[in-house]
Design a protein around this nucleic acid. Sequence first.
DNA 1: GAATTTTGCGCAAACCTTTGCATAGCAAAA
DNA 2: TTTTGCTATGCAAAGGTTTGCGCAAAATTC
Lengths: 347, 347
Amino acid sequence: MKKRHSTITDIAKALNISASTVSRALHDNPSISLETKNKVLSLAKELNYQPNMLALSLLKKKTKTIGVIVPEITSYFFAMVINGVQDMVDEAGYKLIISQSNESFEEEEKLIETLSLGRVDGFLISTSSNTMTYGHLEKLRSSGIPIVVFDRDCPGFDADKVLVADFDGAYQAVDYLVKTGCKSLAHIAGPANLTTSQHRKAGYLKALSDNNLAIREELIQTVDGFTSEFGEEAAKALLDLPYPPDAIFAINDAVAIGAMAVIFERGLRIPEDISIVGFDDEPYSKYFHPSLSSVWQPVYDMGMLSAKILMNQLDKDFDDVNYRYEVLKPELVIRESSKPLPDFYKV
Amino acid sequence: MKKRHSTITDIAKALNISASTVSRALHDNPSISLETKNKVLSLAKELNYQPNMLALSLLKKKTKTIGVIVPEITSYFFAMVINGVQDMVDEAGYKLIISQSNESFEEEEKLIETLSLGRVDGFLISTSSNTMTYGHLEKLRSSGIPIVVFDRDCPGFDADKVLVADFDGAYQAVDYLVKTGCKSLAHIAGPANLTTSQHRKAGYLKALSDNNLAIREELIQTVDGFTSEFGEEAAKALLDLPYPPDAIFAINDAVAIGAMAVIFERGLRIPEDISIVGFDDEPYSKYFHPSLSSVWQPVYDMGMLSAKILMNQLDKDFDDVNYRYEVLKPELVIRESSKPLPDFYKV
DNA sequence: GAATTTTGCGCAAACCTTTGCATAGCAAAA
DNA sequence: TTTTGCTATGCAAAGGTTTGCGCAAAATTC
């Protein structure tokens, strides 16, 4: 039983003045007499008048709303990005519509479709792992809606982008593992289609070759998702090899945790028999036993920066094609799941 | 540089007919000739016509959007509730605006204020831990916007509610701990203001007295937040007691994990020296060492049910004051952080 | 051929707000 | 007295869509 909100017209009628006058009075327009202003203001308060945002949006063609599309919300990673976005956006009075694609290209398309129907001014998007073409994004942008892509790059699609130096993070991790004496390093790689997976894998490969270690294809296990269950499977495959690895660099912490569970099941020790390094540095990671070494990412900052760039775009009223390309630096956090660095490496 | 979306009027002009005819044609209204319909439909496709949702919402006074207010989004618990909500709501064509109160009453008030200005049709809300009065909710409801309260009850505020039998869950956990031989059971209680904390504590107390165990106030540590750091502090306080506990029932898994870390630091064994049971059964909990016993909650279902109830309310066009009060059943999951149940208790 | 029904479409209002332009009243300047 | 200028307000359009009502032309019935 929706009770009608009182409108500007209600006030106008009650006061026997026009709606325009009321509007101007409420906005403290100098051309309205003090007397009228006071009457309007007090009646507005009495009737609990609230401007109708829909009417305003329709008129101004701005919704003051930003659409955020993430693959999923249950992962710490994306939840934390959203936190950063939210904090940045709040001050500017923007609202957020958060949607999940569930790593599905079709859902992603549908979301963009529906959200763009006059609901949001701009998009913050991290594509699904099944997104391989960017026609939907091109279409969106060509209809004049600014987009900022974050974390997962969209090669060939020009837009503002805020990414993490995944190659770098992976390189750091693997190089460190080598320096601690590991000789046979495995990688549990993420969904092949994602740039983040590709870059981390590339970092792994480069670190190996820079250290003159042979690349053994069978030591690279690719998983299709980011949960611990995938890590378990991959680890089993690795441990079943005739020459199993003495270190695993996992695509993320959840997968690393799954791998650790399997390693323990087999009666092996971490890090004595096998070293483990993850990616993401989730809050729980330091509480595992042994605590998990991991590559930390500036997740919150990524959210903040992406939001800032988007809001910048929204302020302009022309397409700025000088897209920004920001790459944030990750950082290796060493804990107990990997061996300490020998003294002679220390600075 | 926002390019104008093509509108119904554009089509009308191009075809030399009225906007009403176009609208009816697009809605397959029988009073429009097949010929006109075809012309309209093909031109609409060509111009990539998309209805303007804002205009529609303004007219219909429905936004097809639901506001979800949670204390935080980074916790698995609320993220998973949102998942349930999303899945239920998607089919019905509703969109979600998700906002976080950051456990702040003021932010919660502000969110409700802004979102209710014609943006959302209804609210799904779990109040902040600092919310002690419900005037903002009363006001919201009295303006005709349906509300469903979930997880955290608002005593004295009448509305549809979807809760979890926290008392029950806590009772199960503590009763079980007693039956495994623990004599001195501690509880790390949650923020005092939350009904969930209160009910879990009540369950703890009842299980103790039902088992003829004395209640020792010093064994109840209250924390102000849900992160592991709080668990660490509380555990330290408990272990520093002259007669430390041989079991800890924690308000949630994160806190339990923090407690476990401290216990290990002190060289104690779990569960031999101290048993631990958490609450929430987060995905990681089974991967800890020892794996964490916990009370599982039907989180996803809670989201689904809440959303369903809200959408039901939205379909009606009168205030249904027969508010629903749903209480979902949690379930104890026994793992290695607590001792096995002696044989003679087993069915 | 006249009366009636059917078919196909347009008008205008409604949703709520903002804003450029017009206007009315009045005082001051010429 | 006329002109100018200012103050305070109103009108109407615009934003995009739906829908009740009305109207004309065509088709049907007698």
